[in-house]
Design a protein around this nucleic acid. Structure first.
Lengths: 342, 342
DNA sequence: TTGAAAGCGCTAACAA
DNA sequence: TTGTTAGCGCTTTCAA
């Protein structure tokens, strides 16, 4: 391990003061120096293999140029896309992201949030927000700017960038209605997340506006956004008192699970039951019968939330929108058909 | 923004020296203090909401406790799984990962590698290695420990943790042979990656050992591991002089693309042509006809490579294995059948 | 067992 | 335009 070259080394070599070296190397302060000196210093720096030390700079400037990203699970492509979107703006601004996975476990979330603060992150992009804010996050908001992406925290002033959950569900319900469905069930997402609750209430509103019946047995709530929960909820609905011809699911993975459960009962989608999803995850188009779903702009959510966060980090007084809602579109594939004639 | 509590604040409060506070707060040096003092300091620290400052500590100890992870693309679940595996060992050891995406672009890789070094990372987990090492990485290896995961760098002493690429391909070729195939084509991965080259040469060896014909027209090389390249290569093979009954692909996405290209030609898999993949990515089981593939331990690759890196970071003199190869298994689904009788 | 003092590499206010 | 000086918050000798 060669020990790194420091400003002091360059100063000794070029026979100027370290502060002059520091100025020469910073494009913003470089202008106040003779171009001759700037030249000499930069040349020496390059020749000696100088690399700026972010740690030392951070201690002095009180800015680490590191942002924390709280994710439920990077393995989930929905969140990975948000990461790329955020990265596309962080990187050119010189910010590097530290990514941590909460697995939607409040305890992990709390612990990891503190880890990020100890790391001295300049801001936090929270993609793992739960509706109820964690105590430390509420407290930490005084210490560091936070923006939530994809989901939002209720009863807090933390800005969020989300997809139009309500409109997405409305599109699906409307589409099912257009195809002739009148008895539509809902597999809801976890009520601990804003997406789960928003989509469930949008479902109630949309069906209500269309004058459809909506008994309690028409909704089953998943505790996680995954296939096994989709399966469990679909079975619950199938065993219940509500005779439905379609299921609008709160996301694609729940829908995939639901279709599987249908199959195990000898029912096929869309012939016996129509199913819709949410998100339009990759490869979905290849899985029969082709899930009709809502396409969201995950990359855009990442990009916009990162831009917002940067604004908050660089200008503490800036006013930023409390909520930014991105438009969604409907993707029609093969999982929706007219209901079976009785 | 409340300004953070420092050791100095606690020292003033508890009327001891900052060095004593530092000792009291560190479990390793705590023992040399009176338990009364330790108590007093810890209580005060908790009460005042003290949070250790990693940046300041890092400057002093010359360890950032940050590791860099170079990935081709976090959006790809194969790599996301490696991240989770690595995280599962980094986190308990107190390391936080900075993740950057190279998109397999050598220029980005080089630039991002330097970004990581400037950040003062204690080590680098390189999941985006190309066969030919980049100049700066070769140089940087003197400054910081590096381990490659999933892929390896040729002609370098950088340790790697990889899957058994050769055995995986052998399993697929053997399986195709067992089903009666004698004319097998190969869609190879990019020769810039060790996986692409390893799998291609394993294909040549395996077919050779079985005494199968292998003209040049039996192999098409993809420039990226994605569906469109799989499609392009399959079309190339279909238009070539080699009449094959099966295609062994270097990974699942190439295979998916190949199956699609087959379909566009009016050929079906497996009736007309059998196809195999590599990796066993999520949701693959849901895509008809069910890709027969090689299951690899991506989480394990992440875990083991992280363990290796930690060993190198904490004990510079430690001898670590140059190459660690993880076993693979064969997953048989519906994409392989007996060849059509002529 | 504790304190005093130095310094990690850098930036920035102040002086010249 | 450049140098001087003083830290940022922490760890770690060395001394007591």
């Amino acid at each position: 391990m060669n020990k790194p070259v420091t400003l002091k080394d360059i100063a000794r070599e070029t026979e100027v003061d370290v502060s002059t070296v520091s100025r020469a190397l910073d494009p913003r302060t470089r202008t106040m120096l003779t171009s001759e000196v700037v030249d000499r210093v930069c040349t020496a720096a390059r020749r000696m293999g100088y690399r700026k030390n972010h740690i030392a700079r951070g201690l002095r400037t009180r800015r680490s140029m590191i942002v924390g990203m709280l994710l439920p699970d990077i393995t989930n492509t929905v969140f990975a896309a948000i990461v790329r979107g955020a990265e596309s703006v962080f990187e050119p601004h010189g910010y590097a992201p530290i990514i941590v996975n909460t697995d939607d476990d409040p305890r992990r979330e709390d612990a990891l949030f503190n880890v990020l603060l100890e790391r001295g992150v300049d801001g936090i992009l929270d993609v793992a927000a739960r509706r109820e804010n964690s105590r430390s996050k509420a407290a930490g908001y005084a210490d560091v700017p936070i923006v939530t992406a994809n989901r939002e925290i209720e009863k807090s002033s933390i800005p969020s960038v989300v997809n139009d959950d309500a409109e997405g569900i409305r599109l699906m319900v409307q589409h099912l209605h257009d195809c002739g469905h009148r008895r539509i069930a809902h597999v809801a997402g976890p009520a601990t997340t804003s997406t789960g609750r928003k989509r469930a209430s949008a479902f109630r509103r949309a069906t209500g506006e269309l004058g459809l019946a909506l008994p309690g047995a028409a909704v089953a709530e998943a505790s996680r956004y995954d296939e096994s929960e989709g399966r469990r909820c679909a079975e619950l609905l199938l065993g219940g008192r509500f005779a439905f011809t379609a299921i609008a699911c709160a996301n694609d993975r729940l829908a995939l699970g639901a279709i599987d459960a249908l199959g195990r009962r000898g029912l096929t989608c869309p012939e016996d039951v129509s199913v819709t999803g949410f998100n339009d995850i990759p490869f979905l188009n290849l899985v029969p019968p082709g899930l009709t779903t809502v396409r969201v702009q995950q990359f855009g959510v990442g990009r916009l939330s990162a831009e917002l966060l940067i604004k908050m980090m660089t200008d503490p007084g800036a006013t930023v929108p409390r909520t930014t809602i991105l438009p969604v579109t409907s993707i029609e594939r093969g999982s929706v058909a007219a209901p079976k004639p009785i």
